[in-house]
Simulated scan of single mutants.
Amino acid sequence: MSRIGRWLTEPVPLGRVAAFRTLIHLFVVADLLVFTPWVRSRADVPGDLYRPLLVGRLLHLPTPTTAGVTAVFWALLTLSLLAATGRAPRLLGWTVFALYFEWMLIAMSYGKVDHDRVGLLVALAALATVGRARHGDPTRSEAGGWALRVTQIAVICTYFLAAWAKLRFGGIDWVTGSVLARAIIRRGTDLADLIAQVPYLLIVAQFGIVAFELLSPVVFLLPERWRLAMVGFFYSFHAVTMATITISFAPHLAAMTSFLPLERVRPLTWLRRPAGAEPPDGREPEPPVGDDPGRLVGPVPAADPAG
């Protein structure tokens, strides 16, 4: 296998895949109920306002109707909850991906297209290619590594291509103009108003945003500790964005957890463990491997950082 191939399929613990699968499918539920419930109102919009995206035109998808949108909503809500349990990972995974893809086409075919959904869509599709994975399983899987890696690539492409679009369509005026000032006027918070009073700070911030987005692929070149630190910076950037101009990028943030050692977060195990009790060897017990864990490479200690 080539060096790039080894990098793309760098094995990760199946416990990480299981945790990521649960998180992503539960986020789909939250997205339906909290972040994009307005998509259901698309069924009430006149059909002549429907302008399907290119993929919708290629697939000849029908104009949304009340019955169709309602069916997608309830099917997606139910099946996402089932998929979060890890059951029938391929069948439920592909079904949820197809339904959420249609949900996004309905949402984005009326004039506004959000770019924070790319990583989430890739995560749903990639996870559907991985077989069974149990929480806490330290067995490493190349199939699981590939699913997380392509999600990470989609997340970073979202940043890099956003900077490319800024410079392509806005040119140097994007970084030297009043982009952030207009955003603060439209949807800024009290904190943003305070920041806007500092001379030239918004211009500096615009240069910083483009530089950060263009340099985001560097995260793949860093050792584990520094990579996690850079991902922490990504999250802090979005925290500041939310605190100032109330843009959350929630789907993108969910997909970005593909960089994190999620297998170390096991709330059910902590709740079940008696107070003060520790595993005999300082590690979590290793549960049996699932029936179809993908391409397995042997167990390693859970404390060993994954790539």
Rank of each mutant, 00 (worst) to 15 (best):
P267K: 00
R149C: 03
F73Y: 14
F237W: 15
Q206L: 11
L167F: 14
A123G: 06
L105W: 09
D31H: 14
A183E: 15
D190T: 07
F237T: 13
A154W: 02
L268A: 14
A71S: 14
M242C: 01
C157Q: 07
P287E: 02
A181E: 12
A302S: 13
R16W: 04
E278T: 09
L54H: 08
A126N: 08
Y50I: 00
L228M: 14
A30E: 06
A75G: 14
P46M: 12
R134N: 08
I172C: 06
A67C: 09
V297K: 06
R266S: 03
L121Y: 03
V155M: 03
A254D: 04
R42Q: 13
F233M: 15
F101S: 09
A250R: 00
S109F: 05
F212S: 10
V231A: 07
G56W: 07
R140N: 06
P138W: 03
I209S: 09
L167G: 13
T269L: 11
D304C: 00
A98D: 13
E286C: 02
G86P: 07
P217F: 10
R117V: 06
E284A: 12
S41L: 15
L201P: 00
G5D: 05
P223H: 02
V28P: 09
I203S: 03
V34F: 10
D291P: 10
R51A: 07
A75Q: 12
M256V: 08
L33I: 14
P138C: 02
R266M: 03
P37V: 02
A229V: 12
W94F: 14
W174K: 06
S2Y: 06
L148N: 03
I106Y: 04
C157T: 07
R132V: 11
L167T: 12
V17G: 01
R40V: 15
W94D: 03
L296I: 15
R225K: 04
F169S: 09
A147Y: 05
